[in-house]
Design a protein around this nucleic acid. Structure first.
Lengths: 182, 182
DNA sequence: AACCCATGTGTACGAGCGTACACAACATCT
DNA sequence: AGATGTTGTGTACGCTCGTACACATGGGTT
């Protein structure tokens, strides 16, 4: 067998797991499906990740990091005093308008924490991370509130199938910000 | 075999499915597990519900109805001009403080709509239903916003494990209501 | 009474699953 | 160079799953 000593094996397995969740959902995630997607033998996935929970933790953490990088590179959030509500609403719009796959993937991993305690710390890290990104622009309580509202808005779109209404989002986020201690 | 001509068979299967999701999660839902829980043969579940999606639709619809009845019997929401934000915050607190199982069950079925288009209309019905319950107290846009915010708050608690902060919820809901067209 | 079809029952098949384990190969340390 | 432990590979076991199908039963219609 050719492929011996593959130092990035673990990373490639994580990437494959993310692709699998993206295409088949968490229900389609198994050691075998990941092994096939990563083109490694079955034993290799079970070796690097004893349980699927471990693999999901790694996958969720990686998507979180990717998300943070995306936002950071997008920059916007650090402008001095632009309309934060409008900025956020527009940014949600961009996110939701793209390939639904990407959003579904991140939310599916995120929501999986409901039943999998192992994922909860990672989900908490994400919420905290986004709140921190917002912190230069508002107080901590408002930042946390914005995260909750963004989640609520996105979920309504994703779960009920109603189209995203950017003006509605801007209005709602604006109300939350209007109550912020200045 | 004794149990022939069982007119409530279908209903008992739905009830069993809800219990199974409550105890083992959607991942543990199968024709077989439901059949065992309902104490009916395997063929019976596959006969009444050709696919698991069908069964989940019925289960989600039933939990929605149960929820509506609960709120209706709880009454509160129809008081003339009490503080709606405080009322909602208190009500979320009650909901989250009880057995986590019940909340998990409803949210798990609700969130399953992310990957199962068949569930989306039912999820939409739920959001619309709650918004309607709120409609005597505020305008439609604010009602929808409140639903989103409640979802966001509950999810933060359920997904990240941070304890529920009723005062924070009241403050946030209050901000949303403060912007409502009177 | 005869018929028919919705409903109920039991069993079997093939597929995919997690897990376990024995063995191979290589990197690293002594 | 040789020992050692991490990493990679292949295979097999036992289990649960959805699905299909043949047959039993009995209520409702004609």
């Amino acid at each position: 067998m050719p492929r011996r000593h593959d130092p990035e094996r673990r990373q490639r397995i994580i990437d494959a797991a993310i692709r699998v969740v993206g295409s088949k959902g968490i229900a389609g995630l198994s050691h075998r499906s990941v092994a096939a997607e990563a083109d490694v033998p079955l034993g290799s996935t079970t070796y690097h990740f004893r349980t699927l929970d471990e693999l999901m933790v790694a996958a969720l953490r990686q998507t979180n990091e990717g998300f943070a990088k995306m936002v950071a590179s997008c920059g916007g959030l650090e402008d001095p005093r632009a309309d934060l509500a409008a900025e956020l609403a527009g940014w949600i719009g961009e996110w939701l308008s793209g390939d639904r796959t990407g959003v579904e993937l991140e939310y599916e991993l995120y929501l999986a924490a409901l039943r999998r305690p192992a994922l909860r710390p990672v989900a908490a890290e994400w919420a905290e991370g986004v709140a921190e990104l917002l912190s230069p622009r508002t107080d901590p309580v408002t930042a946390r509130a914005l995260v909750a509202v963004v989640d609520g808005i996105c979920l309504q779109v994703l779960l009920t199938g109603v189209p995203y209404d950017e003006e509605y989002a801007r209005e709602l986020l604006g109300r939350v910000l209007a109550g912020a201690a200045d």
